[in-house]
């Protein structure tokens, strides 16, 4: 089992640090000694086949898994004993794959739902500036939005809360190229503002634009990690593992 040694950039401590994380759904052991580091302001992308454990890794970090073991630290704070509803208060939030827009809430209500956990979040005006089409539809029910708009809303509502780390699960899945472009722009914008992102993504062309590093996953293990500059050199290996 090749385990990637945690990378230390300039001796700084990572903002999010995952060490030897194991996870279970019921009886089945789905994560095996997963380790990854996310430096402040960095964007990393998890790649791997369906069922490799990418979504599960995100859920484990958010404490949404029935059982997990190992170490998770945010800013050196031990997150393993933090209850689910306190996790966000350590500055981390989550955009699930199915986006999780609430049908019985309007766009504005969806936007206002996640509680503020820290100062420094964007104001509603700033958010609507970044996502003008949401502003137009602020009173429609959440599920009357198009897939792209739902994805933007799912990202937008987290920006209000003041979190520093966002976990995004396949933000481009099932969206038209022009929308994907738009989401890419938004993520680059967020990076510029110093946001730290952990992306799960199958779309390499999209991911290489935003990601600084890649982690390759298979069968619940992290196989290796490499910087985006090595992506082309690694393409054969990726095709073999991910099968794109």
């Amino acid at each position: 089992m090749s385990r990637t040694p945690p990378e230390r950039t300039n001796g700084k401590k990572p903002l999010l640090e995952v060490r030897d994380l194991d996870g279970w759904y019921g009886e089945s052991h789905v994560l095996h000694r997963v380790s990854l580091d996310l430096m402040e302001g960095e964007t990393i992308t998890l790649v791997g086949r369906n069922g490799a454990g990418k979504t599960t890794t995100l859920r484990a970090i958010m404490n949404l898994l029935p059982r997990r073991e190992g170490e998770i630290r945010i800013d050196s704070h031990d997150m393993m004993k933090v209850p689910v509803h306190r996790t966000a208060h350590h500055g981390i939030s989550y955009v699930p794959e199915e986006r999780g827009i609430f049908a019985s809430l309007s766009v504005t209500e969806n936007l206002m739902l996640p509680p503020k956990v820290a100062d420094g979040g964007m104001s509603v005006e700033e958010i609507f500036e970044l996502f003008p089409n949401l502003a137009e539809r602020r009173n429609s029910p959440g599920t009357k939005l198009s897939g792209g708009e739902q994805q933007m809303l799912a990202i937008a509502r987290i920006l209000r809360t003041g979190v520093r780390i966002i976990l995004l699960d396949e933000p481009t899945e099932g969206l038209a190229p022009v929308i994907i472009q738009r989401i890419g722009d938004v993520l680059i914008e967020l990076k510029k503002k110093g946001m730290t992102l952990l992306l799960v993504e199958q779309n390499f062309r999209f991911a290489r634009k935003v990601a600084d590093r890649f982690y390759l996953m298979e069968d619940g293990h992290i196989l290796e990690s490499f910087p985006t500059s090595q992506l082309d050199a690694k393409m054969d290996r990726l095709n073999e593992v991910v099968g794109v």
């Binding site: 949404l64 509803h85 939030s93 019985s104 209500e109 996640p114 509680p115």
Partner: peptide, 22 residues
């Protein structure tokens, strides 16, 4: 009320956002 309606649909996500669902 919005918390309540949202938690009716997807309690886990609401909890992950930092709402004390219990």
């Amino acid at each position: 009320g919005a918390y309540l309606r949202a938690a009716t649909e997807n309690p886990q996500l609401v909890q992950a956002f930092g709402v004390n669902v219990p």
